[in-house]
Every structure is written in C-alpha cells, then in structure tokens.
Amino acid sequence: MRMFRNDYSEGAAPEILAALAATNDEQTVGYTEGDPHCERARELIRAACGRDDVDVEFCIGGTSANVIGVTGLLRDWEGAVCTKDAHINVHETGAVAACGRTVLPTDDADGFLTPEAAERVWRFQTSTGRHMTRPGCVYVSNTTELGGVWDKARFDAICDWADEKGLPVFLDGARLGSGLTSPAAGGLTLEHIAARCGAFYIGGTKNGMLFGEAMVIADPRLREAFPFLQKERGGLLAKGRLLGVQFEAAFEQPADGGEALYWRLARNANACAFRLREGLVRLGFSPYGEAPSNQQFFVMTPAQRDAFEAACGCETFYELGDGNVVARFVCSWATAEKDVDELLALAAELA
C-alpha cells in the first residue's frame, strides 16, 4: 500500500526531474547568485505575486526558511507571536531560540492565530516595559499544523492587528500550494499574501520538488539581513541553481495557457485528500476538526491506528483523554485515486 505518512516521501514530480536532468551538464555560478535559472524563477514568482519590488530568495528547507525569516525580522529583545502549536514553537527543536530569539505563543487552540489572543500576548509582554520580551513579528502558517486553511477575511484580521502594532507578518508556506488551491481559501490569493506580508515562502519540498522553498521578502530589515543570515546559519546551497531550476519548472506558464505545474500538483494532493476524508466519514470514522487541505486528521482507537500505521504509515498527532487517538493521513502530488481507494478498502475492514 502507498504511504500516507507525509507529502515529501517521494522524490519529485516527473516534470521537475526532467528539468533537472535537462540542465545537468550546464555550468553556472553558485549560491543562487545570478545564474539564469534562479533569475528566471525570480521573475516568474514576482509575476505570480503581482509585485516587482520584492526580493525572491531560495532556501533549502522549511526549518531553514523559518529560522532565517523569523530571526531576520527580530531584534535581540523581540519575539515572534504565534500559536502554541506553531512549527517554530513545537517541531523545530528550538531553532529560533537557539539563534537568541524568543517565541511568544498564544492560547489559540485550532492552529489559527487570532487578533484577540495575539492582543493578550501583546498586553502581557508590554506590561512592564523593558523587563519583558517585546513582540517583534507575527508568525502564521498556511496550511496550519492541523490542516486548516486561511481565508481572506481571517487572514486580513490578523494582518490588520499586526499593522496596528507595527509588526511585520511572516507566513510559513510549507504547504501554501495546498492552502491556496483549497475551496476553503475564500478569496485569499498569492497576490494578496504578497501585498500584506513582510515576508513569506512558497513551499517546494512538500509540493513536488526534491527540496527547496522560495522566500518572498518585502520587509526592508529582512531584505538587508537575509543574505548574511543565510550564510551564517548554514542555509546557503553552493549548487544554488538546482533550486532555481525546480521553481522555474514549477511556475513557468504552459504554452497552452493552462495552470502552472505548482498549482496542478497541489490540486491533486487536495483532491485525493478530500476523497479520503469523504470515504472515511462514510465508513463512520470521525474527523478531528476541519481540514480542507492535503492533511486529514481522524479520531480512532489505538488498535485501528496501529493497523493503519502498519499499512500506510499514518502518524499519531494526539492521544485523547478517552483513550482514543488522533491519526494524520497526508496526500501528495503523487497520490492517485486508486491509492486512496486501497486505503479505504482497509478502512472498511477496521470500521
């Protein structure tokens, strides 16, 4: 059975591999500094964002992008406001803290950072002047850690709050493709994110590339700091053109005028995830929250989880107080309907 553990188990989409193979013998300058593929990818991404006044830089992976982006927006005495389950707070081994910066989690419980919870953190952290870490930026992710998808109204609400406080918004876009191609996006577009964020990145590792994220930077402080932080913190790839080639292939518009590969890959992952969700619900499994993305979460018994895990590698996210668990299933660019149907056949035996 095909694995549903994550969306980066496979290598890369055939079109990405073909682009890398076709350029394999080329000799270019390194470090993403002026090679034609990185420059073309930058042009394509700026066009997709509707802005020609932003820097586009390439990172090797999500943790590197988060560390460089978040710490580059902060001064020594500042911290990042985020949800308590945010990747920078839970899943990155204290990487932001290891760079001398502080994470300031809210009490939001569903993966979405709200203005109300952010305001409580702001008031507390600024209540004693110089004696506490001051909020210096806002961190959100799309999709959220629980597979949630930001819509335009919700996104604008937290951006408006951040603007009132003079804080730049940093968006972790490791699964941005899934978020923006979801029917739950509610008018949120790449152009709108680019208009409102100080910085964000477009995830490639989890959407059909071998590796890589594309950082879009508007904030002047991060624009100045990024090249130096990337080198200092071990995130600068000598063979940088490999990043450019992949994003070039992903964002080049097809000759027939259709949708760019990046969005087509994300739509496939979402479609398979929705098929899986509908099938599991039909069999009587209970979803854990709303997850209109390529990540799906379901409540089940430990025995059911063990059987799924052995067959398809699903991961346990939570252990609930009633003895049940929450398991996560993830679809990728490579998942096919037949893979979902095979998993649903097993689910029918376990229901």
Rank of each mutant, 00 (worst) to 15 (best):
A13T: 01
A22M: 06
A22C: 06
Q27P: 02
T32W: 10
G34D: 10
G34K: 11
P36R: 15
C38I: 07
R46N: 07
V56G: 02
G62P: 01
W77K: 13
E78L: 07
E78G: 03
V81G: 07
T83Q: 02
T83V: 13
E92W: 00
G94E: 11
V96F: 06
T102A: 15
D108F: 09
A118P: 03
R120D: 12
R120A: 13
R123T: 12
F124K: 13
T126H: 13
T128V: 13
H131P: 01
T133E: 09
S141M: 14
T144F: 08
W161H: 04
E164T: 14
K165Y: 06
P168V: 09
V169Q: 04
V169M: 06
D172G: 11
A174E: 00
A174H: 01
R175W: 01
G179W: 01
S182A: 10
G187F: 08
G187A: 08
G187V: 07
T189L: 10
I193R: 02
C197V: 04
I202A: 02
G204W: 00
A214Q: 05
A214P: 03
D219P: 05
R223A: 14
E224R: 14
F228L: 11
K231A: 14
A238W: 08
R241D: 07
L243D: 01
G257M: 11
L261I: 07
R264C: 07
R267F: 03
A273W: 00
R275H: 15
L280S: 04
G284L: 11
N294V: 00
F308I: 06
A311R: 12
C312W: 02
G313M: 11
G321M: 13
D322C: 10
N324Y: 02
C331K: 01
C331A: 15
A334F: 09
A336R: 14
E342L: 11
E342P: 03
E349P: 02
L350S: 09
